[in-house]
Design a protein around this nucleic acid. Structure first.
Lengths: 74, 74
DNA sequence: ATGAAATGTAAAGTATACTTTACAATACTA
DNA sequence: TAGTATTGTAAAGTATACTTTACATTTCAT
């Protein structure tokens, strides 16, 4: 059963698929490792603001559309 | 002279002043400590994406307007 | 069906965001 | 000008984003 998830969800996987990018390609383009992309897509942790900006740029999608904040979190 | 700064700049201080909020009030509203606000306003580090969302909400300003990403960074 | 590409899991290490505490300096108001 | 609010500095500790390496599983083209 899933471990802790962050208060931030994302639609990176969907947008990545739309662009026909593999996790490795996206990681490269964003300047991070594949592990970072995997963990983020799985919601295991939220990206830094800097990575969020980079992903938004690569995926040509506004940050607010790529990431959703869930205020109601314990 | 000035230590390392992050690749992300922000206009939090200006927006905070516009709202007539002290660092302490903003910190409270965003659920962090005053030290975090100070360090962030001074550009000593970039906030997490979660904090960025919280500040954007409190200051009623889009993330992309509150924070600017500087890709050209060594 | 076989091989390769893509995705996933795991774990230990590093970097940095954030906290906590304490005190100093500056600005505002009576 | 005295007191108070606000901003600033410093340093040690905690939480977590991100890296690195290595290997397992699934997906896809041939």
């Amino acid at each position: 059963m899933g471990g802790k998830r962050s208060a931030i969800t994302n639609t990176v996987k969907a947008h990545r698929s739309d662009k026909g990018l593999s996790q490795a390609k996206l990681a490269d383009a964003a300047g991070v490792t594949r592990q970072t992309i995997i963990a983020m897509e799985q919601g295991r942790y939220a990206p830094s603001l800097e990575l969020a900006f980079r992903l938004a740029h690569v995926l040509e999608t506004p940050i607010e559309e790529l990431f959703q904040f869930e205020p109601e979190w314990e």
